[in-house]
Design a protein around this nucleic acid. Structure first.
Lengths: 224, 224
DNA sequence: ACAAAAGTGTTTTCTATACACCCATGG
DNA sequence: CCATGGGTGTATAGAAAACACTTTTGT
């Protein structure tokens, strides 16, 4: 049986910085969709696993090192790519704020972060892929503690709170939220405090990694 | 870029009958893993969508018509198939009890239902795939009303209850469970009653399709 | 009459939510 | 001293869980 189906991976990588959730996009250097914005990604090599392909493409096209990666969905409609039959396995990634420095190369002219509310027109069916990824992010953050993956190792509590209000698109009660998070015991409060220009300085927190992985492994219910 | 990666689909199809949750397996007719049990599935044709491929393979190999189908996960490890690089997109399916009559053909010697607690040794990485599918089924049934997909159109309430106790692997309180389900208003109680040999006969119920699709669309929270 | 399955409400506990004032710092 | 953001507790309402006896049928 001769198979002429091509296989690619695409990555929807989210980053968060000061109230903005961004997606990483690259400007295509070649046809099809030359000069259009698209998700970073490309053909899977025969001797690499899928995750390796994603990490390689991300590194080649954007220089970003991923912090959290999971498979999102596989898109295989017959007509999704003008080059012929191309099935794409989409991944969902999160990076910490210090990954915001980019350097494009290979197949990409440049890589940039775009606020998820102001995305440009995208190549292929990538708009749909991004949409599904956003839904997954919003869904997931309410029942798994993945929000931490988007923050620095040490962060003020207000950053976590702001991340959640941004992602969920609604205000949350600071006291109730802190109660919930505190009850999970995933946060260690550090001695250090940090000031945001004006106002009372806040304590820095960090993850309790052990506890965090325990919860994750247990598939813990973590409703916000 | 020449791509010699092959693409297959595999289906983990669950059926339920009188307290038994079963998975549909086929006995392989050809190498590799000739005579071993495996998930129904096969190569994706260039001009068919992924779901079409699943349905075609299921129909060819088992004669089963699927009632609910969703994508499960894509398995792409380099060494998962001795024939070379084969990436498989696994699907998750549910069928109603009247689908329990099977007729194998094409690549399969025969098709059979196996209780999920007594599976034979499986070809490829299909054991892992089945495991992931079982986790998905157990997870999903607690927050989406997919349990109905496994029952006949008209069923006694005790069947639904038993399905849940079986899937969750624990007893559930009949009164609380009925309260929960009733509050969703997805069930219509029919006038007809049915007896299970001995004991008091129970009313038959059916889904309120409209309400059911409303809930599904709204991604309703449906915790059991 | 007894064994087997169906049907039915109330109480208690826990969790989610609503809500407002004081504190520490920089300008 | 004032503007800005950080920190903290309690009361209420709603949902989940615990719990046991009666009814209907077949044998």
């Amino acid at each position: 049986m001769k198979n002429t189906i091509q296989l690619t991976v695409d990555a929807v990588v989210f980053g968060y910085e000061s109230g903005n959730i961004s997606v990483l996009l690259v400007k295509r250097k070649y046809e099809p969709y030359k000069n259009a914005w698209a998700l970073p990604g490309g053909f899977v090599l025969e001797n690499e696993n899928l995750e390796q392909a994603v990490e390689r493409e991300l590194s080649e096209e954007t220089g970003v090192k991923i912090n959290y990666l999971e498979q999102l969905y596989t898109f295989g409609d017959v007509a999704r790519d003008p080059r012929g039959r191309v099935v794409s396995i989409a991944y969902f990634g999160l990076v910490k704020p210090n990954a915001f420095k980019l350097h494009a190369s290979t197949d990409a002219q440049k890589a940039e972060w775009f606020n998820i509310a102001q995305l440009p027109k995208l190549a292929f069916d990538h708009k749909k892929i991004v949409q599904i990824a956003i839904e997954r992010l919003q869904g997931k953050i309410t029942y798994e503690p993945i929000g931490f993956e988007l923050l620095d190792k040490r962060f003020p509590f207000s950053d976590l709170e702001k991340l959640y209000t941004t992602l969920l698109g609604r205000e949350i009660d600071r006291r109730n939220f802190k109660k919930k998070i505190t009850s999970l015991k995933v946060l260690d409060e550090l001695d250090e405090k940090v000031s945001k220009g004006r106002g009372r300085p806040g304590s820095l927190f960090s993850f309790n990694q052990k506890r965090y992985f325990q919860l994750k492994k247990a598939g813990i219910i973590f409703e916000i």
